[in-house]
Amino acid sequence: MKQIILALVATLAIAPAALAHSKAETTTPANESTVEKVEVIELRFDDPMRVTAITLTGPDGDVEIMRETGLDPVTEFRAMPSAIMPAGVYSVDWRGLSADGHPMQGTFSFTVAD
């Protein structure tokens, strides 16, 4: 019984590597890329995804972004930063609800260079 519990705990504790219930999404800017400027932030999904929350965090804290895509499920989500982004490392953290009802989340980061 102890081994079974250990196995279950081990399964739960393994570090996450991929997204459940959707093939790995592609993003603009691409994950871990370096770009000169950011005109748009895009997330592309295989199946429609309702992106319910998204934040962009930079060297000076949260950066305001304007959603072009509403709250309907989409395969391509777009948002624009509302101001010019200074150089530094940025990360995007998003939450959503997939077509089969699973709550989803993901994160990606990129660097803005001078």
């Binding site: 319910t52 934040t55 709250l71 953290d93 998003w94 939450r95 959503g96 609800l97 089969d100 009802g101």
Partner: peptide, 27 residues
Amino acid sequence: RAARISGMGPSGAIEAMMLSFVWDSPL
């Protein structure tokens, strides 16, 4: 589920819009 998709923590659990999204989903 509403809290998870809201990204707001516990307060998301009673957020009407998030709850409506869950209601509209297969759940």
